[in-house]
Design a protein around this nucleic acid. Structure first.
Lengths: 233, 233
DNA sequence: CGCCCTCTTGAACCAGTTCAAGCGCAGTGG
DNA sequence: CCACTGCGCTTGAACTGGTTCAAGAGGGCG
């Protein structure tokens, strides 16, 4: 196993929890692929032959409506799985997948996954757990779409992606703002306006990204009603 | 096994696909419960000890935000499963569940499900498939929330719930309009207005429910852009 | 009958979209 | 080296879908 494969499988909840025998088998059956920014990983309604495990970069899962509108369903990054639900059922992909940045992914044939489940029932349980996590992520997104305003969703996104660095809370925007807006279900213009309004809540530019100087204020912002938003601040 | 249990398990994808041995074991370990309209099935953040399989009626999965806003995540009916993702992981419920109408559900202890998976790996695969279907349903909801206007979501909901009866396409609204509005992510007032606008698209009152006289028109409505909506009609 | 509850209707208001213009910046080519 | 161009992002102004608040209609029930 190449060292980068080893590192990658450690970062991935599915591979790292699998038995070493299953993991070795899966990796041996797979190939590492590299995608340029914007490149297609798979297309909506193609035959779902492969599952993917992201090693690096960001992938976008999306659907195009007949009207032409694009819905960005999920954004996935290192260690996360893509296409398992579609490929394991043996039908077609329910979404398209593009590389949102240059990214590297392990391409695992669905047949190899199925064979592994058959040989190692424990691996089936791992996939079930992984699938439950997908459900959580989707549920949370529905919650925010139904209950939060655009600005609140932006604020929640920032908090979610913020990392402590030398005692400061820094968000490095993971991909272009246009894509971020689509993911949040608003237009780029609205995202721009939301970010500038958030300056009054202590979100200030810091180098490449943004600094959240007052996490409590952001938290309160997310948890306040639309009415409170109007009156307060 | 009581005859109603037998009928119920046939209607449920999870039970009907399980081996008869597993099915009998699960049913023997479970108890049938009846919930009044509005009654709590389980609460958000309670210890997730049981899974539920709906036999009759409608259940609402929801979350309450700190602001007090309620997000209706899913509506479930006969044959569908509730709480599996939460109970199988052994944590707490990620959502609350209420009976939206009087409803009957099979209450299955999580331990019984886990034991069945251990004894019968095939059952694990059935649950995995079931979980993938949850993902599909959630994904579709996100798609509609991000890409369709309120009226389009209402129209899509009507089509989804319509059934052919004597050559006419009839929708019986499955629960109160207030709940339906929450599920669609709009306010009851907006639902009311959307429904009255849909009259011009051939959605007319028919007995207890509504008749869709021109399914093609509704389909076009759903698939047109907001711009086309403004100009046309 | 009065009470409650769900649903509808109307009018004012606001969040977010749309359309259009302009900025900053990297890449390209003269 | 600088003008030109394309692209991502921002800003402004007009517009609109949906909310909010308030009032009223209809229906079931003690």
């Amino acid at each position: 196993m190449q060292p980068n494969l080893f590192a990658a499988s450690n970062k991935c909840p599915v591979l790292s929890k699998a038995s070493s025998k299953s993991r070795d088998y899966l990796i041996q059956q797979s190939r590492m692929r590299r995608f340029e920014r914007g490149e297609t990983i798979f297309l909506h309604e193609d035959t779902a032959a492969n599952c993917y495990i992201l090693v690096n970069g960001w992938a976008k899962l999306y659907r195009i409506m007949p009207s032409g509108a694009e819905a960005v369903m999920r954004m996935h990054t290192s260690g996360e799985t893509i296409g398992f639900a579609d490929a394991l059922r043996g039908g077609t992909y329910q979404t398209g997948a593009d590389a949102a940045s240059e990214c590297i992914a392990l391409e695992v044939p669905a047949a190899a996954i199925r064979a592994t489940i058959a040989k190692d029932p424990e691996f089936g349980t791992i996939l079930l757990t992984n699938s439950f996590e997908q459900i959580d992520a989707l549920s949370e997104q529905i919650e925010t779409l139904k209950c939060l305003s655009g600005m609140q969703r932006v604020a929640a996104f920032l908090l979610q992606h913020a990392r402590k660095r030398q005692d400061r809370l820094i968000v490095t925007l993971p991909y272009e703002k246009g894509l971020m807006a689509a993911y949040l279900g608003i237009k780029p213009e609205s995202l721009s306006r939301a970010l500038s309004k958030l300056k009054t809540f202590g979100v200030i530019p810091a180098g490449e990204g943004l600094e959240i100087t007052d996490p409590t204020a952001i938290d309160e912002l997310i948890h306040s009603t639309m009415n409170e938003l109007r009156k307060g601040a």
